[in-house]
């Protein structure tokens, strides 16, 4: 195939993915226990006062925020996953390899499981404050983990060391959390467990804006480094010999992906699977390993996969939606397995 044709094919594919994402967005806003006609949706989004007030409430307070959270979370985790897979040259790497989810989980565990279960303790009060308290705790926890990772990344010379530090931090933190669960009362343990299932629901608009800001910054940072990521396919030394500033590229990828993972985990809980799987899907769809092409495709596909997962979660069980992590694992894992087994021409 000529290079011209190949470039056109990539552009066409990206256009197609965008169109598909747009369609999913529309479905996500209109479908549900109450079906909203497309025409009404348009006028609601434009803020026309004549539209049905019930529809308005459903769209503005339930479906739109949830759709946006799912879209942002899917895009963010997938972009972070791609960055980590390239940086560590490891197909199993994902947005959480650096232990950011562990930090967020610890924060949430501390407030929901609050040691000693004294109902008057400050932590318990924050915990009772439900959503906002959890969000705050997860953000502080994720930021703490991000700080540790950045400190390590600034000091050590090898990618592998960073990976090991992230892994050890995760183990250590899950030990702490295990201890907290052991001490906690059954109800609070269950509350914590529900948080770990992940959810796009009930996110207040302010934290949605915060998420959007963090995702924008994180994705832009990674996007600026696509050339360096291409070079890293050959290994660190070769990348350096091609004139790439490997140290700052690594720094940018680590900070960018940790920020993305932290923002998503703080907002929706630790959403598994999407971040590891979507980059592979993207390579398969685009049939390329050039990041200028992979990054936009990964972002689009990540958003689409999250929206589909959300639709399945909602569509499956009436008023109480299935947890997102249940959906991504139950549907995603077999799908990816089929993909990997059938992919003769390109394997890791």
């Amino acid at each position: 195939m000529s290079q011209r044709l190949r470039r056109d094919a990539s552009s066409f594919m990206l256009l197609l993915l965008s169109a598909m994402l747009l369609a999913l967005v529309a479905i996500s806003l209109t479908a549900g226990s109450v079906t909203i006609p497309l025409r009404d949706l348009w006028s609601i989004l434009q803020g026309t006062p004549s539209s049905d007030p019930v529809f308005q409430t459903i769209v503005w307070e339930v479906r739109l925020p949830r759709m946006l959270v799912a879209l942002l979370a899917g895009a963010a985790l997938s972009a972070a996953g791609l960055a980590m897979q390239t940086l560590f040259r490891n197909p199993l790497a994902g947005p959480y390899v650096l232990g950011v989810d562990a930090g967020a989980s610890l924060g949430v565990a501390l407030v929901t499981l609050s040691v000693g279960a004294g109902k008057e303790s400050f932590l318990a009060t924050v915990g009772l404050w439900s959503g906002m308290g959890r969000l705050l705790a997860a953000t502080i926890g994720a930021a703490g983990a991000l700080g540790v990772v950045m400190l390590v990344a600034a000091r050590v010379g090898s990618d592998l060391t960073i990976l090991i530090v992230g892994l050890l931090m995760s183990y250590f933190v899950s030990g702490l959390i295990g201890f907290l669960i052991y001490q906690a009362e059954p109800e609070s343990s269950q509350r914590y467990l529900l948080w770990t299932f992940g959810s796009f629901d009930n996110i207040p608009w302010p934290s949605l804006f915060l998420l959007a800001g963090a995702v924008l910054v994180g994705i832009s940072l990674i996007f600026l480094l696509v050339k360096g990521m291409d070079a890293l396919l050959l290994g660190e030394e070769s990348a350096e010999s091609l004139g790439i500033a490997v140290r700052s590229t690594r720094w940018g990828l680590v900070v960018g992906s940790s920020l993305l993972a932290a923002a998503v985990t703080a907002t929706c809980g630790p959403i598994g699977f999407i971040g590891v799987a979507v980059p592979h899907l993207s390579r398969w769809v685009m049939r390329s390993s050039i990041h200028r092409i992979l990054m936009p495709a990964t972002i689009l596909l990540g958003a689409m996969v999250a929206l589909i997962a959300d639709l399945i979660a909602r569509g499956s069980a009436g008023n109480t939606p299935m947890p997102i992590n249940v959906v991504t694992s139950l549907f995603g894992a077999p799908l990816l397995l089929v993909l990997v087994l059938n992919r003769r021409e390109a394997r890791w």
């Binding site: 040259r89 396919l233 290994g235 010999s241 390579r283 890791w348």
Partner: peptide, 12 residues
């Protein structure tokens, strides 16, 4: 420079 290189990602 050409170092001993192990490619990890499927590439054309």
């Amino acid at each position: 420079v050409l170092f001993p290189t192990q490619l990890k990602s499927p590439t054309r």
